[in-house]
Amino acid sequence: MNRSEARRVVPLGESAVVVHLGGTVSEDLHHKVQALTRRMEANPFQGFVECVPAFTTVTVFYDPFELDLPLHETGRFDYVRSLLETYMADIQEMPDAEPVVIDIPVCYGGGFGPDLEEVASINNLAIEDVVRIHSAQTYLVYAVGFAPGFPYLGGLDERIAAPRKQSPRLAIPAGSVGIAGTQTGIYPVETPGGWQIIGRTPLPLFRPDQDPPALLRGGEYIRFRQINAAEYERIKGAQS
């Protein structure tokens, strides 16, 4: 095990630490990330505020004034690190819950996916092949970030990879499903962006009036399912 693969806890200011569980992105390591997050949320230490899990790390926020600091302990970081060692003991690479697979209906191409043809021609594929390959896989949500509810997904099939647009669009509608390099993702809110847009889902990924406010969370899996425009409108209508 080289140094970068080792577990580390490093300070992030006076109110947070970053727990590194390993140095390489993998589904196995990410299960540990999620297991540690669940363990801390289920049994928080005094002063715990929140966990922000990512690919290989969990960032733990706390209120340094609320810590139950032992008298002899001077450094708050050292104290929190010692707490985390306990949480990290016997964290397994196996998911400790049944993996959740969430169905994401997508209307591919047309006005919803203006770049579908380009992605097909870049890869010398028929449009139907791009859709088939994109919707054949399950994708792990490695993290939610960048925008509210935006999932960082793993595992795009390289046969449908495509470079970003040369000039980004000023406004990509919420729900747009895109490809950038070997990544695929879904825009939860309208935003400028350079991804190749191949379709759109009628499901809201960011829903501030609900708790949890995001459809997806780290550690879940998603699968895209092709729908037609009529189904898109029907699901969209059912949301509002």
Binding site: T37, E50, C51, V52, P53, T59, G145, P212
Partner: peptide, 10 residues
């Protein structure tokens, strides 16, 4: 707004 960082909410 704390507690929602894992959903990408700042």
């Amino acid at each position: 707004r704390s507690g929602y960082g894992k959903y990408g909410i700042i």
